[in-house]
Design a protein around this nucleic acid. Sequence first.
DNA 1: AAATTATATGATAATTTTGTCATATGAGTA
DNA 2: TACTCATATGACAAAATTATCATATAATTT
Lengths: 113, 113
Amino acid sequence: MSNLHRLFFKAFSNKTRLEIIRLLRKKPLTVTEICKKTGFEQSRISHNLKCLEHCGFVKVTPNGSFRKYELDKETIIPIVDLFEKHIKKYRKRLECCKVIGQSNRRMKKSEAR
Amino acid sequence: MSNLHRLFFKAFSNKTRLEIIRLLRKKPLTVTEICKKTGFEQSRISHNLKCLEHCGFVKVTPNGSFRKYELDKETIIPIVDLFEKHIKKYRKRLECCKVIGQSNRRMKKSEAR
DNA sequence: AAATTATATGATAATTTTGTCATATGAGTA
DNA sequence: TACTCATATGACAAAATTATCATATAATTT
């Protein structure tokens, strides 16, 4: 359980990256396609794809000015399957964890009075 | 790939919690024992144990004023094994990812001039 | 070669997560 | 009952992560 493990899980523990993984699980996509499907900004997608690539979650195939991203199937898919199992069992608890859940959220500046 | 997945991975992606998991992998321990072995503060351990318990990673057995924490073996151990495999392959890349790696770190206030 | 399209990247503000401090609770013991 | 030990918890400062903005690069088309 080293620092590497932590990095590995960090790559997973982010909304944008998980969304990308979810999409790529179906089929390879370009940056623009991912943008359209998620509704997220392009630079946001690029930054996070870079992270995923760096960590070995995705591979790229340049094609002209496009870059096709696809998911690594050897380890990422099996891991996703495994935690589906865990989540089935602990859904309720995960949902209301105070430390990492939404309830830990503080008031946003924009909400402050 | 929902918000739940994110929470699940978040539970893993923290130094303190990973250290606790590493220790509990060997045998069940009380809070004080974990404190001693890690050198981390007691409230830090308690807060994070609570998170782990909440997320179904650990179970507690109260015993007098002690509380023995042990790891869930059904899903957590297999997952750990799976990512060992991934890490073996991508060690180098994970180590230098700019987005989630150490190099993303900004200067601390105490270091500012 | 200028314009357009696709993607990447650096800096930084906004947000989230974490650890710490102070303190609370609860069980056992003198 | 007062004291000690084991653990929990709330609030908040500090640290880490994230998204966004501005801009860069690189391929393609006109």
